[in-house]
Nucleic acid binder design. Sequence first.
DNA 1: TTCTGTGAAATCCTTCACAGCT
DNA 2: AGCTGTGAAGGATTTCACAGAA
Lengths: 233, 233
Amino acid sequence: MPTTPHPKSADRPASESMSAGIPDATIARLPVYLRVLTALAESGVATVSSGALAKAAGVNSAQLRKDLSYLGSYGTRGVGYDVDYLRIQIGREVGSAHEWPVLIVGIGNLGTALANYSGFYSRGFRVVGLVDPSPQLIGREIHGLAISDLADLEQVVRGTGAVIAVIATPAEAAQEIADRLVAAGVTSILNFAATVLAVPEGVTVRKVDLGQELHILAYHEQRKAELAGKGEP
Amino acid sequence: MPTTPHPKSADRPASESMSAGIPDATIARLPVYLRVLTALAESGVATVSSGALAKAAGVNSAQLRKDLSYLGSYGTRGVGYDVDYLRIQIGREVGSAHEWPVLIVGIGNLGTALANYSGFYSRGFRVVGLVDPSPQLIGREIHGLAISDLADLEQVVRGTGAVIAVIATPAEAAQEIADRLVAAGVTSILNFAATVLAVPEGVTVRKVDLGQELHILAYHEQRKAELAGKGEP
DNA sequence: TTCTGTGAAATCCTTCACAGCT
DNA sequence: AGCTGTGAAGGATTTCACAGAA
């Protein structure tokens, strides 16, 4: 999985009332199921078995059933799952019932790609703010949304009510921006910068490092090459 | 971690000669250590303890020591690790001794961002091919490299000798492109398209789904909101 | 004494296998 | 008869805690 500086130690969150404690690994897969279910619904499929859904999502069917069991018992034994109903249930759990306002900081190539990424919109995220320090970019629009000056970061955060922000700046700038975002009220950060962010307790950071992903592939390539060197069975 | 359709079952790779069997979780962290070590070297630091390195990399110090122990015993008890030496060792293991030629398919916003991403170059990857079907893009150059016609995909793969490819196309096109890449000799794919790729045994796929990452953040946000509802300790 | 290297314990995740609805 | 829901087994990863080298 993407190497995430996890919520670390964290005292057992005390009150486990009702819908608590879904494993991170599971919530990472829910969006995949959601996408497959959407495709099925569009194809007019009304019910689906765990086996079929699992295959389309690229996971083991037992895993799929266990994942869904964390949400509740939404299937029918002997039949399968109702596509539309399951879609609603997963969507609710995953947070897309909510419309999340998202702020993107750093409108370079990557930030622009993210601002244009339609996948966000269709999954309940609204890009409500674009921020960059470059005078050449400030004022330009992407999908009708004007780029704001980095100097006004705090006002943009407060004005949009965004609690989720994406950092797509050079590594050098990332920590300072994270500090300012957190001070202004952001509590979740998706970090594309190649640096480890220090944030206070209660703020969640997920890191995506593109070079890192390639490194992992390169490692597997190297292993393959080594294995090929010695006689294969 | 990034939700990766893992090499699945995979028979125990038989011959465990010398440097075999490093856990995936560890190799996912090695690039992070590498980056921190590079920064330290540039700051003129000659030795570093596991505690300091771990803190800078955002991991537990026991974890860092265990990770490094898979590579060998490169530290000195009572002292720490020699920054330059450790850097070489990790670099070798992680595959950056090799210069990996990489092909990018789909030169939209994301593909362009990737083609411009300097992080690749500095870590031993060379973008040697850019491919897109759009007549408006074919022939344009990014950093002196011209975009090739998707129709010529196979020739580009063979001509460059790339075995690692990045797919940054719409989801609909991804599977067909993956099939063609594999047929032409590519054995590792980094997939940004929002779809599960089916590939033959022996081909490694890593998937990065940007919307998915946001979903996970949204989930944590929702949990925070729920917890805030009931009296905090 | 300091800090690494590593068995062993603890935790987290996946897969199996089967009881129980429909 | 078919397919879900889930204890329990099995793996993998993380953390602990301490023996041992400098």
